[in-house]
Design a protein around this nucleic acid. Structure first.
Length: 886
DNA sequence: AGCACGCCGACT
DNA sequence: GTCGGCGTGCTC
């Protein structure tokens, strides 16, 4: 331990000991660097993660620079001490570069990027909580009127105060976070002040609960110790047990096995026979034990793809276009295996972990416990431990969702992004609004390793990038000169070092809204797996014209051919999948008599009809804010009892199935039935075990599940997918339908797809039916290029939100004005306009969409400048490369 | 974010 | 004349 005699004293000849440290604090609105005193016992390096006092509370901070002399512009008394060192040696130079690049490109602060990179809980700040005062209200008060209490209020309580008191009394502990109470109760602020004044509740700060490594006591046999003759028989027995178990056991296990007490063991420890010491245990998701698996023989296409992949050295962006069932996973596995042998790690990114239990299982079967899973459904402890395990430096494979792109893996040899077209790789809620594919390409570039993008229906971005490059070779991709010259082959020395970057705080904390820091990507590569494994054919796709069904008198939601196919399927004891575009029973409920539509009181959308199957309670639910209410018996405006449900959601289809096919055993698979942890796997296992004939579900059925027994796929109506007011609607529809179709015929029996639609001539339907991916892409790209939409132009969406409808509009208009002169530089500005759904969860939204042409160096105003134009009650989110425009 | 400080309207 | 609302600004 260091003891600092005097500030500035040299401990080592060449390294003056720092007594002050400049940090970045984890607090929105606290831009810039803050200086803290370092207590003598702490040794801190740039990049270390600290906890510091900030204002009233404790917050997380990142050490930026150590100082040997105190800052001159501040009184020494103003400086506070660093509280604790949370993590050291985490940010390597390349990792730090990655984070700054993300912050720059996505127009957020570095701190916000750091927050997604670190496991949750590491940067927790102290939390403001409210609790009942002991012996005062103490949970016994039923009402807030004061009769039962010894100290009646001086004045009657306001409704807000009463509500707070009821809330607190209802909980066991009488203790809630202030944030929760504010959300639950309007006017919570006043209410709280009243209660505090009356002495019934108190306000307190809960210090940050750091996630810590879990320690357990281990007992280890001291091998060399001479056998002590004073040992009792009991003690000898214990030693024998320990020896038999390999000389080491957890204390708890040993106690249980020997039915002894810890005093006995302490005695052994005192005699020097054993050592009892705390040891870190990893909290890991306990995977079902899986039989080991070996490499499968490859098809010629797979072999060719693997060979090309393995011929790469260093960074390359590779698109693996393999039709559904073509064996992409096997290529990933065999590409990764030699890397692990070489001591290199691999990162595998998937859209949603829960949806691909089979993929995880296959990796585990092949690589055993070198496989870690990292995603948001893990508990904080599990995530923290997995994260620390990655830092320890052992080569490993991490399978994770979007945020795992920041996994701190040592010696990355390969990044795989499976189902690369999937939109869940894009984060659109809290900043940074990053796309894991984009970040992965930077990461691969910085780590100098290949990035493998796999899909049966590649995104247009990846297609254009990897295909056009094939012909043209290297070329610059993106607009602008590219800020930091992130050309990947640039020699290390000419890049700004971490130190240099950090020296200018502004270059980090107030990112400029640049048009494109995207760089020169070398060696894009296109690999193709055009056929399925074992020469299995792709399923045939029958398009059924539902208009015709109606004309010919079929009013059912199932066409005659789908009905026949379902019956044949059941007869042959095969299984099928029925795809529905929406969840819920039907989309909305309206009055046939007056046209009234039940809408959400918080959002400008209609409520969806749900049916709680256990009890026959008809419910209406908002899919945006989850507001739920009962279905009214009659129309709230005209009191007519004629309510009609429109659309056909999962529940309604399941009902119709039960009516028309009473023998068919149906399993629902949508976000309603798969909400709980592990339910995906459970449902899929149930289905795989043959406990149902038909799996009925939504989008999630399209995401790479592999069920070999499925021979029939039915699409109830493709129309909901086709007609969405969005420039990506066609691309998304094509991808979803092709992916859904790909779920059948993966086993020995050929598959068949029945696609019902009211628009059989729609180009998307035609392309899906003929598996004409390239043709579809060509027409789609033509349209995109005409309108300068991605991938021929870039979009930036500025989203404004506020509880005040006037303030949002003003903010949007002021920002639009500030952006006016961009038009001279070829930037197209759409808006400001109220968002399609103006109000979501009581907040009003406006937006501005910027369309930036490629190949122009446009510099947009600094994002902090734009934020400064907004009133304080208006939030501004900058979504670079947005996928959802509304 | 959370909390102080400070300026305006409804009360003693 | 004071209390208490919330709008503005700072936190090393």
């Amino acid at each position: 331990m260091f003891v600092l005699a005097e500030p500035g004293t040299d401990y080592f000849a060449d390294a003056p000991v720092a007594a002050w440290v400049e940090v970045l604090v984890d607090c929105p609105g606290a831009q810039g660097v803050f200086t803290y005193r370092l207590p003598p016992s702490l040794v801190v390096q740039p990049g270390d993660i600290l906890s510091v006092p900030f204002g009233m509370q404790q917050v997380g901070a990142i050490a930026i620079r150590c100082l040997a002399t105190p800052p001159t512009d501040l009184e020494p008394t103003q400086l506070k001490d660093v509280d604790t060192l949370l993590q050291t040696g985490f940010f390597s130079a390349t990792y730090w570069q990655l984070l700054t690049r993300v912050a720059d490109y996505y127009c957020t602060s570095l701190m916000q990027v750091v927050r997604v990179a670190l496991p949750p809980g590491l940067l927790t700040r102290s939390q403001r909580r409210v609790r009942l005062v002991d012996g005062k209200a103490n949970g016994k008060r039923q009402t807030a009127n004061g009769e039962t209490d010894a100290s009646p209020p001086s004045s009657p309580l306001s409704p807000a105060a009463q509500q707070l008191l009821t809330l607190l009394n209802a909980s066991k502990t009488g203790d809630y976070t202030w944030q929760y109470l504010q959300r639950q109760c309007q006017g919570a602020h006043q209410g709280l002040q009243e209660l505090v004044r009356n002495g019934w509740v108190e306000n307190y700060l809960e210090p940050p609960a750091t996630v810590r490594p879990k320690q357990r006591l281990a007992v280890t046999l001291v091998a060399s110790s001479p056998t002590d003759l004073t040992l009792t028989t009991r003690q000898q027995e214990i030693l024998a047990v320990l020896r038999r178990q390999g000389g080491e056991l957890w204390l708890a296990d040993l106690l249980q096995q020997c039915r002894t007490s810890s005093t006995t063991l302490k005695g052994l420890a005192q005699k020097g026979q054993v050592v009892i010491q705390p040891r870190e245990v990893l909290r890991r998701e306990h995977a079902p034990t899986i039989a080991a698996d070996v490499s499968k023989p490859l098809t010629p296409d797979q072999t060719a793809a693997l060979e090309q992949l393995q011929a790469l050295s260093g960074f390359a962006q590779v698109l693996l276009h393999g039709v559904t069932g073509s064996g992409k996973t096997e290529v990933y596995l065999q590409a990764i295996a030699p890397m692990l042998e070489n001591g290199q790690s691999a990162l595998v990114l998937v859209p949603e972990i829960g949806l691909t239990p089979q993929l995880t299982d296959r990796f585990r079967a092949r690589f055993g416990d070198r496989v870690c899973v990292y995603h948001s459904a893990l508990s904080d402890g599990e995530r923290y431990d997995t994260w620390r395990q990655m830092l320890n430096g052992d080569a490993q494979v991490v399978i994770g969702t979007r945020s795992a792109v920041f996994a701190p893996l040592p010696r990355l040899g390969l990044i795989v992004l499976d189902e690369e077209h999937d939109s869940s790789f894009k984060q659109d809620q809290p900043a940074p609004c990053y796309h894991a594919r984009t970040v992965a390409s930077w990461r691969a570039e910085l780590e100098d390793c290949p990035l493998l993008l796999g899909s049966a229906t590649p995104s247009l971005e990846s297609w254009v990038f990897c295909r056009s490059q094939k012909a043209e070779g290297r070329r610059e991709w993106g607009i602008g000169s590219g800020e930091s010259g992130v050309g990947s082959r640039e020699p290390e020395s000419s890049r700004p070092s971490l130190e240099e970057k950090l020296r200018e705080p502004n270059s980090n904390h107030s990112p400029t809204l640049r048009s494109s820091p995207v760089a020169l990507h070398p060696l894009p590569l296109f690999l193709s797996l055009p056929t399925r494994v074992h020469d299995r054919p792709l399923p045939s796709i029958d398009v059924v014209d539902m208009r015709r069904e109606l004309h010919e008198g079929n009013h059912s939601i199932f066409s005659r051919s789908l009905r026949a196919a379902l019956l044949t399927m059941k007869e042959r004891q095969q299984q099928g999948i029925l795809f529905i575009h929406r969840r819920g029973h039907s989309t909305f409920v309206s009055c046939r008599s007056c046209g009234y539509v039940v809408t959400c009181p918080n959002c400008d959308v209609s409520l969806a009809y749900h049916h709680v199957h256990s009890e026959a309670i008809p419910l209406l639910r908002c899919h945006y804010c989850n507001h739920t209410r009962l279905l009214p018996n009659d129309c709230p405006t005209c009191h007519s009892t004629y309510f009609k449900h429109f659309g056909s959601g999962t529940q309604r289809v399941a009902q119709a199935l039960a009516q028309e096919f009473p023998d068919l055993r149906v399993l629902r698979f949508d976000s309603d039935t798969t909400r709980t942890k592990g339910s995906h796997r459970a449902l899929l296992n149930q289905f795989a075990a043959g406990e149902a004939d038909l799996l009925v579900g939504t989008q999630m059925l399209a995401k790479g599940i592999d069920l070999p027994q499925v021979t029939l796929v039915g699409v109830v109506s493709a129309d909901g997918l086709l007609h969405m007011a969005d420039y990506r609607a066609s691309e998304r529809a094509f991808q979803t339908l092709t992916q859904v179709a790909g779920r059948c015929g993966r086993g020995d029996d050929p598959g068949r797809v029945i696609l019902q639609t009211y628009a059989p001539d729609h180009p998307v339907i035609q392309a899906v039916q003929q598996y004409a991916y390239e043709q579809f892409v060509a027409t789609e790209l033509g349209q995109r290029s005409q309108l300068n939409y991605p991938p021929y132009g870039r979009l930036v969406l500025l989203r404004f939100g506020s509880t005040s409808p006037i303030a949002v509009q003003q903010a949007a208009e002021r920002v639009a004005l500030a952006l006016a002169d961009l038009e001279a530089h070829g930037v197209e500005r759409l808006g400001p306009a109220p968002a399609v759904i103006l109000r979501v969860a009581r907040r009003y939204h406006w937006q501005i969409l910027l369309k930036l042409p490629l190949h122009t160096a446009v510099t947009l105003p600094d994002s902090t400048t734009l934020r400064a134009l907004c009133a304080s009650n208006v939030s501004l989110t900058i979504d670079v490369d947005p996928l959802n425009l509304f």
